[in-house]
Amino acid sequence: MGDQPIWITFIVTFAIMTVLLLSMAYTTWYERKVLARFQDRLGPTRTGKAGLMQPLADAVKLMGKEDLVPDAADRNVFLFAPLITFTTALLSAAVIPWGGTVQIFGTDVNLYPTDINVGALFILATGSIGVYGIILGGWSSGNRYSLLGAIRSAAQVISYELILGFSLVGIFIITGTMSLTDIMFKQHEMLSFGPFEISNWFVLTQPLGFVLFVIAAVAETNRAPFDLPEAESELVAGFMTEYSAMRFALYFLGEYISMIIMSLFAATLFLGGTSGPGADKFWGLGIMWLVLKVMAFLFFYIWLRATLPRFRFDQLMGLAWKVLLPLAILNIVVTAFFRLIGNGQVF
């Protein structure tokens, strides 16, 4: 880990962005396929082999559609709002590590765009700006369904962001750092129990934190069963009711990017990131493990969507403030207590 020429950072960032944007398109395909299997259907089959060209066809279709602005809309805010959601979702990828410093063609390359000492908080911060896209989009549409979706989203994201942040405090207490790179490499260490050696993934030491994080992450990305901002059966499509063409696609893709980012974030924090058999010998294997973990998370997201019905709004708020928040605080207290025992400052 160290400084590198800025052109290498540009190349790494470019590669990560390309991969992220492509995988975002193919996450839509993945979701449609997996969801179809859950519902005993085939999903897309016509465009290309196994429907693999479907995302491209969708992109062409969406770009060719008319970009409508309703009469009642606040025009400038309406046009600007989708960009906020999309760009902030992409921005959070800047701090997620895909490995350490490796040698490629004899040059030292950091497999992360940047490593700031508050990386974990940075992702929370970009997420909290991203909610403005939803709120402003809903408000500026001049439609009461959109406004309702926006208001629901504001309340939901504020509540669950708190839990998302609190569920990470346990890890910060254990590692003493907020840099995602440091947190990831702490998990590459091995714990030995007699003849057995297992990786020190934080899901083992922070199981409650992990559960809280996953619940809050699903709510934060507005996915089922927490998709109240866009509940079809009540609000038409919530905050995106009035959007069409590429602006609709920006919201849609922003949601998928934040799903991928949240999966990367969870894999980095709790499942060891790139750690796995052989990852310390070849960096490519590490990336493969990270991708596998992310795909498992995405599968879990889709599984939830296929299984659970939507929450009622009062249940959603009750769950956040009366159940998850006390549990998160309990997790912090217990972790801090064990950390003090580990330091020999108690007993």
Binding site: L124, I135, A154, V157, E161
Partner: peptide
Amino acid sequence: GAVLVLVL
């Protein structure tokens, strides 16, 4: 992320 969202 929190205060201004409530204001809005």
